[in-house]
């Protein structure tokens, strides 16, 4: 739906200093473009729970991080999200891929469609789901609103298959 250069340029414009990430087949290809930016650094981690806590450390240290993961990794991240967003009250923002939202060709009956939004609601994350390229501007709008309010938030990017 979005290209790597589009996302990379936007994140740099928004002042994101570090993108902490585990890839999937949609957001993973964005990495190359992010790595080419001068003011945004890519930080690869092994598992998504790590991403939130690395972002927490970056935020405590004065940086402006963003977590970029798939919804499957959101499910893995529960304890870290609870700790970072609700114990330590750090306003970490995330871009999360929503697997199988646009089609279920590779994973018919994908349970990501059952659990993603309830899990986001359970963790009290203020999120916007983007389903069309024309909604690109919503990323900056929601990011900026969350930053101004110093609250966590997420953009959920609808994906096709796994």
């Amino acid at each position: 739906m979005f290209t790597g250069p589009q996302i990379a340029e936007l994140l740099e414009q928004l002042g994101v200093t570090h993108v902490v990430t585990v890839p999937d087949s949609t957001i993973g290809p964005w990495q190359a473009a992010i790595e080419q930016r001068e003011r945004t650094r890519l930080v690869r981690v092994c598992r998504e729970g790590e991403a939130w806590e690395v972002a927490a450390g970056l935020h405590l240290g004065g940086a402006s991080p963003l977590v970029m993961i798939q919804c499957t990794g959101l499910f893995e991240s529960g304890d870290a999200i609870r700790n970072v967003l609700h114990d330590w009250k750090l306003p970490v923002f995330a871009i999360i891929g929503y697997r199988s939202y646009l089609n279920q060709d590779t994973l018919p009956g994908d349970t990501c469609l059952v659990f993603t939004e309830p899990v986001l609601d359970a963790w009290k994350i203020d999120y916007h789901i983007l389903t069309k390229p024309e909604q690109f501007g919503s990323i900056a709008e929601h990011f900026s609103a969350c930053r101004a309010a110093s609250t966590p938030g997420a953009i959920i990017v609808a994906e096709g298959g796994a």
């Binding site: 650094r41 790590e50 806590e53 690395v54 450390g57 970056l58 405590l60 240290g61 004065g62 940086a63």
Partner: peptide, 11 residues
């Protein structure tokens, strides 16, 4: 260790 990594990168 993950919080430490973030802090080390930021500082």
């Amino acid at each position: 260790t993950s919080v430490g990594l973030g802090l080390a990168l930021a500082q």
